[in-house]
Design a protein around this nucleic acid. Sequence first.
DNA 1: CTGTATCCAAAATGATACTG
DNA 2: CAGTATCATTTTGGATACAG
Lengths: 145, 145
Amino acid sequence: MARLAAAAKKAPSGHQVTPATPPWDVYSAACPTRLVLDRLADKWALLILGRLAGGPIRFNQLRRQIEGVSQKVLSQTLKRLERDGLLSRRVVPTVPVTVEYAITPLGRTLSDTVRALARWAEANIESVLAAQAAYDAAQTSRATT
Amino acid sequence: MARLAAAAKKAPSGHQVTPATPPWDVYSAACPTRLVLDRLADKWALLILGRLAGGPIRFNQLRRQIEGVSQKVLSQTLKRLERDGLLSRRVVPTVPVTVEYAITPLGRTLSDTVRALARWAEANIESVLAAQAAYDAAQTSRATT
DNA sequence: CTGTATCCAAAATGATACTG
DNA sequence: CAGTATCATTTTGGATACAG
């Protein structure tokens, strides 16, 4: 992942215009789809997208609502999502400026899919926890033996 | 995330049996669903799950097919997925032992959702790349000015 | 073949301080 | 309010060597 991430981060300067002729081999390292998947494979991104699907929201509101995210990471993540065209950033020139983040049409198509993921998690969390308990029990007994 | 991940990793000994009474507040740090989401927010996990959906496969086959993953990370990821009950591990006692990984029924229900994510990525990669290019162009010009 | 253990380099994060 | 910059720390990952 290191090399890929590095390449992606260098992008701000050189926009490598990938040929783009799907379908790609998702398992090949050079696959553009993997770049997208990498982006989505982010805890905060998923959470933020889900939250924004409910309507526009300001920076610190978001910060408070998504428990556990630091200012720095939230800022970084928002910037990446904006760059990807998944959300929009609008500066409201009030006295202490406020910034409103909103999901874009593109982002919304994605958030629907993400919600499906969240629904899966909710529906199956118990099964997963049970599986973990069973696995851990097996490990523990093996260690004891 | 650090604290949560650490807590999750300590689990092998103490299985905290979460009460489990949905729906939880996905945005709260203590939410079990977030534990699942964290797990899915992993590049390799998503890729592996997708690959396994196509049928059982051995360790080194997987390693070769999922380009860019190291032996160490693949091993770790497989172990976590197995613990979560998403895939099964079967040791075949051939002379140099071979190990076959297969998706479980639970894992399959998830892989369907993941596939939707992959489909989204394929369908929208061009939009994302375009958005990135536009964003970068705006940044560059702003810097030049 | 399928891993685990170790050591080392790289990357992500948190805390803090500071700007517009 | 909404960030950015910096620094110390933690976490993660790759490479290598080795074991069942």
